[in-house]
């Protein structure tokens, strides 16, 4: 679907960009050359998408566009007209974290956490398409993301644990529940 062009201002053509970000539909006036990452951070307020390099080398800006992981710093906003975009903020269901989020926290997949949003969306996409990946498949999935803190090992551990949860319904309930309990650790 083509975005709606608006009049040209100062030699820059602008248009209304409509897309759904984390389940909420947005109409925003953008310039043709606006980068998706900028629109997400500055206009939508989805600060979970991080800027690490701005040139497609770190993966911190990864978001899901129609379920596929893409580098938002390498994507023009206009390209995503009408798409469904998911950033890290869109992974959890209320207090119920996505299993990959819980496991990143539990297994040390996140240290400084700056690379984490990018990894999480990539991993979520992986687990969506392949709920029980091998370690090798998990490694292949995150090859485009840099992490300077963890050495990746605990990230791959997190993916494997999350896959365990996803593939066994029962554990899903018990492991993701605590996040919905404002007082984890107390009876309940």
């Amino acid at each position: 679907m083509a975005a709606h062009p608006l009049p040209v201002e100062n030699g820059v053509s602008t248009r209304v960009w409509s897309a759904s970000v984390n389940g909420k539909s947005r109409q925003i006036i953008i310039r043709d050359h606006d980068i998706l990452l900028d629109v997400l951070r500055d206009n939508v307020g989805a600060l979970g998408a991080k800027r690490g390099c701005d040139m497609g080398t770190c993966g911190c800006c990864s978001v899901l566009i129609d379920g596929k992981p893409k580098l938002s710093c390498m994507t023009l906003a206009v390209e995503t007209e009408g798409c469904e975009i998911t950033t890290v903020e869109g992974l959890a269901d209320g207090h119920h974290l996505h299993p990959i989020q819980t496991m990143f926290s539990e297994c040390g997949g996140s240290q400084c956490g700056f690379c984490t949003p990018g990894f999480l969306v990539v991993c979520a996409a992986l687990l969506e398409s392949n709920p029980s990946p091998t370690r090798k498949e998990a490694q292949d999935a995150i090859e485009g993301n840099l992490c300077r803190c963890t050495g990746y090992q605990q990230i791959v551990d997190s993916i494997m644990e999350a896959s365990d949860i996803i593939t066994s319904e029962e554990r899903l309930v018990s492991t993701t529940r605590p996040a919905s309990n404002p007082h984890p650790g107390y009876g309940g």
Binding site: L47, L97, S105, G113, T116
Partner: peptide, 15 residues
Amino acid sequence: PLIDSKWKVTGQALY
């Protein structure tokens, strides 16, 4: 787990 890890995994950590 890190005490602030839930902020990090939900994108609520502000850098």
